[in-house]
């Protein structure tokens, strides 16, 4: 454990990130990532590898930008229905450092999502690898593990 870590500052950062996804404001959300930042939603429990095993999502900044452009495109019919989320984060913990020296933060999440006249629930754990910069934290990697990654999933048109 790194005693000098201001866990409050980490929590504030995660809450702000979640608030951007709630709206959703993908433009500003993407800016929280480093240039080499990635977002990963594995398709099985304890998945080790994003390349040799399939995932629900695994985006770098280029794919995030393509997804963002598609998200606001007037001809993307799956985006005709509004989507709104409510993230609740808890059990936020500092888990030491990654090999690259980034902060490893884990938390639990519950997301209630409104989409296509239906309210649904996602739950699981998140892992953030955070870099401290002069402008505050940046995300090098965000991993989202659903509690039911192998279950049939409905269309998910937004990041959790």
């Amino acid at each position: 454990m790194n005693n000098s870590l201001d866990i409050k500052a980490v929590e504030t950062f995660l809450y702000e990130e979640a608030a951007l996804l709630d709206r959703p404001d993908l433009d500003n959300w993407m800016k929280l990532f480093t240039e080499d930042g990635t977002y990963w939603m594995p398709a099985r429990e304890d998945q080790l590898d994003a390349l040799n095993h399939v995932s629900h999502m695994y985006d770098d900044r280029v794919m995030m930008e393509i997804r963002r452009r598609n998200f606001v495109h007037p001809r993307a019919s799956s985006k005709d229905s509004p989507v709104r989320s409510s993230h609740l984060l808890g059990n936020i913990r500092h888990q030491g450092k990654t090999k690259q020296g980034d902060l490893r933060i884990t938390c639990n999440f519950h997301v209630v999502m409104w989409y296509r006249e239906e309210q649904r629930v996602y739950a699981g754990t998140c892992e953030h690898h955070l870099v401290s910069t002069a402008d505050g934290f940046r995300i090098r990697h965000k991993r989202v593990d659903l509690i039911n990654p192998e279950a049939p999933q409905k269309s998910l048109i937004i990041y959790l």
């Binding site: 939603m41 398709a43 390349l51 040799n52 095993h53 399939v54 995932s55 629900h56 999502m57 695994y58 393509i66 997804r67 598609n70 993307a76 019919s77 799956s78 005709d80 049939p152 999933q153 409905k154 269309s155 998910l156 048109i157």
Partner: peptide, 21 residues
């Protein structure tokens, strides 16, 4: 696997627009 993820995933770039129609 990249194809499956990009196109056929429920969180993919192609499948959700198919399902919508």
């Amino acid at each position: 696997l990249l194809y499956s993820r990009l196109v056929n995933s429920s969180a993919g770039m192609v499948g959700p627009d198919d399902l919508e129609v």
